[in-house]
Design a protein around this nucleic acid. Sequence first.
DNA 1: ATAAACCCTAACATTAATGTCAGGGTCAAT
DNA 2: ATTGACCCTGACATTAATGTTAGGGTTTAT
Lengths: 133, 133
Amino acid sequence: MQIGELAKSTGVSIRSLRYYEQQGLIAADRQENGYRTYNPLMIEKVNTIKFYLSLGFTTEQIASFLHCVMMNKESFCSQIVPIYRQKLAEIEDQIQLLSQIRANLLDRIEAVTDENPNLLECESHVHNDIKSR
Amino acid sequence: MQIGELAKSTGVSIRSLRYYEQQGLIAADRQENGYRTYNPLMIEKVNTIKFYLSLGFTTEQIASFLHCVMMNKESFCSQIVPIYRQKLAEIEDQIQLLSQIRANLLDRIEAVTDENPNLLECESHVHNDIKSR
DNA sequence: ATAAACCCTAACATTAATGTCAGGGTCAAT
DNA sequence: ATTGACCCTGACATTAATGTTAGGGTTTAT
């Protein structure tokens, strides 16, 4: 299986596959002509990488526990739990922050619409005084 | 008021103040020696910029409505409402996405701890087979 | 032998706000 | 006249994953 086929099978670009290799996430055998060759199992591995990237892990973090999950022994590899928990905490912090921002935005919107229930159009601030009268 | 004082008064770095100027958010008069000079009102303006940056607006977006909010006529400037709403929608999308990630992470953690309630330590995958027995 | 479809490496570009550094003026006090 | 605390511009660095481009080799079919 060459890199193009792996890319198609996983939906990951060739560029990204080479990047994952460079980051130590995957390895490839080489044909005589220098082309990369992959074992069909690599599809699952790349999909696993995709999944953890989607969870917001960096390639470096994924590299630190990928062997664990690929062995189907995630549940035996306790080192992975604190990593999950840490990421979870980060995610929850981000949600918290975004929720605060959301509340601020709702305040702003409310402030505008409450004070001016019948809002007029205004394309430019130059005309504000006229239009708002 | 020189740039250093403005920086101290607002907690915004000199570098950032120059950047805001370059992005058209603020303007400065110049002394004969080329030093920037600011009106004391600039403090409020910079703080307003800080606030909107914290809401996740870009300098470009802020530039498009800053005159509005600085005139204390935010409520008369209807063009600002769709901008707020759009940002709100983005924020809510991000919250949605992060919540999904959060759920996935909780699943992972649950999967590990459920299948292996009495988790052993494992410093390295090399020793997994031994330690997990 | 040429075209099409593969593959390779290396390197630069992207994003946004900010940090940092280099090289250099200005000003006040001593 | 020197020191220290200001200020200036310009430019490169940061982050992380990916896109893109340049320049070039390989293979297969025609």
